[in-house]
Structures are given as structure tokens and as C-alpha cells.
Design a protein around this nucleic acid. Sequence first.
DNA 1: CGATTGACTTGCATAATGCAAGCTAATAGC
DNA 2: GCTATTAGCTTGCATTATGCAAGTCAATCG
Lengths: 143, 143
Amino acid sequence: MPVGTSLRSACPINALVESVGDPWSLLILRDVVLRRRFRYSEFQRSDEGIATNILAERLKRLVRDGFLEKRADPGDRRSSLFLPTDRTLDLIPLLFAAMAWSARHEPTAEIPAGILEAYRADPLGTTAMLVSDIRQIQEGLTV
Amino acid sequence: MPVGTSLRSACPINALVESVGDPWSLLILRDVVLRRRFRYSEFQRSDEGIATNILAERLKRLVRDGFLEKRADPGDRRSSLFLPTDRTLDLIPLLFAAMAWSARHEPTAEIPAGILEAYRADPLGTTAMLVSDIRQIQEGLTV
DNA sequence: CGATTGACTTGCATAATGCAAGCTAATAGC
DNA sequence: GCTATTAGCTTGCATTATGCAAGTCAATCG
């Protein structure tokens, strides 16, 4: 949520809903965290088919609200990188909770092989691995 | 989602977003699971202030999509009870992940005392306790 | 140097949400 | 048993969000 805006309530679950509870924000953050996609064109390619105007607006909001940082792409000056902040990386447990729920209750959902089991066996370790992985890619991209 | 409706993608995170990713569904389920509220009027009283038409429509959808079961309230024939199915109870880990995220990243969020610590110390046990608690209340209400 | 790509913006149609009022059956108070 | 209140809605309308198609513009590719 924007810094000066008040939430509908003090409830922590409501806070999350108001932050990333629209139909697209969480999917963009999923792309960033679980698929290592950092560019506008990469988000656009995801299966859900986000409209370009919505994507642009949502990226602005996610930057404004501290979920993403926008940086120049050193490899292509037309492009920018949208890199995750801690605010986003701390959503990893929630993303896995969502995956676990769908694995049980949405028979049509395709669960990426292995990752959910790895998380179940060692949540903190798997999270730490994902984070360090992303940090490493970031270093490679921003040098 | 409605039974015959296809999802935007096969992604499990998208499946959850399409099921309860609107601004209200998850808050209603929070009321049911964490606050033991089962009635229309109780949902209406929550701080977020849901509009009556939205609440009615959302309850219908949550029943249709298998999150809630509607039963007669034995104590008052005007009233109905909206009771959680397993589909809803299995959202407990996600609700706690949301609470934990807000506890860290939303300073204005008020975290209910003790429950998050209890969940951190023993997730499965705390979940089981919540579930058996709700089941017990249900028995008391539906006898 | 012309064609393509990346990252948008603009305009407009449709859908979702929000607000206020009203309505009906059941219950509570007297 | 008559009246007021409550529970659970529905309806109408304004506002906001989302979706779709097209267009812009600078950087890059061939």
C-alpha cells in the first residue's frame, strides 16, 4: 500500500490482501522469486496473459510499495530489471503455502517437480537457497 | 472457481489467486477459521466493512466453490451457519504465513497475542488444535 | 538503414466493487 | 398479539478496476 494510505483494518491478513491481493501482483512476484524473471517482457510472457497497461501500472505500484527495485539492465539499455526486496523474498513461505494448498485441492494445478518436497523437508534451508540463488543472479546482472 | 471454468494457467499459485484472490474471500475465511464467526451478520461486523451485496455474492461463491457449507442455524431460524470445509481448513498455514509476513513488514498490523509464536513453535500441532476447536464448536451448533 | 524488440501509453468497453435504500420472514419485548 | 428490531438478503446506480487493441518511441539487430 502507498505510504500515506490507511488500511481498512489493523488485521495482518488484511494488510497482505491489500498489498498483493489483486489478481496480478502475487503472480508477478512469483515470476521474480520462483522463476527468476526480472523484465517487463518476461512477465508478459507468463501463461496468465497480463495486459500491458495493467502490467505497467502494477510494476509501478510494486516499486512504490517497496516490493521491487527498478534498475537499468546493463545488457540492454531499452530494458530495466525489477529486482526483489526483502519484502518480496519474505513472501516465499506464503508462496509455498499456496503451492501446497493447490497441490491438495486443485487437481488441475501442475506442481513443479521436487521443490515442494524440498520445502516440506527443510523450509528454512530451501528458502535460504532460493534467496542466495536470486542474490547471485542479481550480482551477475548488475555488475 | 466454478467447476466448469478453466483457470488462466496451470500454476498452483495462480489457482489460489483465482480461488480466493479477490479483496474479500480470504477475509471471510479468516473470520471463519481464526475468529469462529459463521454468520452473515458476524462477517458484516468485521472492521473492513464489506458491503452487503458483496458479502451475499461472495458467500454464494464460497459455498459453490466448496469452501463453506451452509446449514440452518438451530438457534435462530432466520439465520444460517457458514461452516468451513477441509478446503478452507487447509488454508490455515497460508493464513499464518500472511500473519508472519505482516508482522515483519507492516508495522501498523496488530498481531493477535501468542498465536503466531505457537504456530512457529509447532505448526502441525497448532493447526490441529484450531481444527479440532472449530469441529467442536460445529458439533455444539448443529446438534 | 530498415525491421524488430522492449517498454510503455492511450482510448475505450466491460466487469467488479462500493453505497444507500428497500424488502421479507423470524424473533424479542411488552 | 402487536410493534419494533434483527438477520439476510436484493435492487439501482455511481465509481473503480480490469481487459483489449492500437499506437508511440528509443534502442538494437541484421
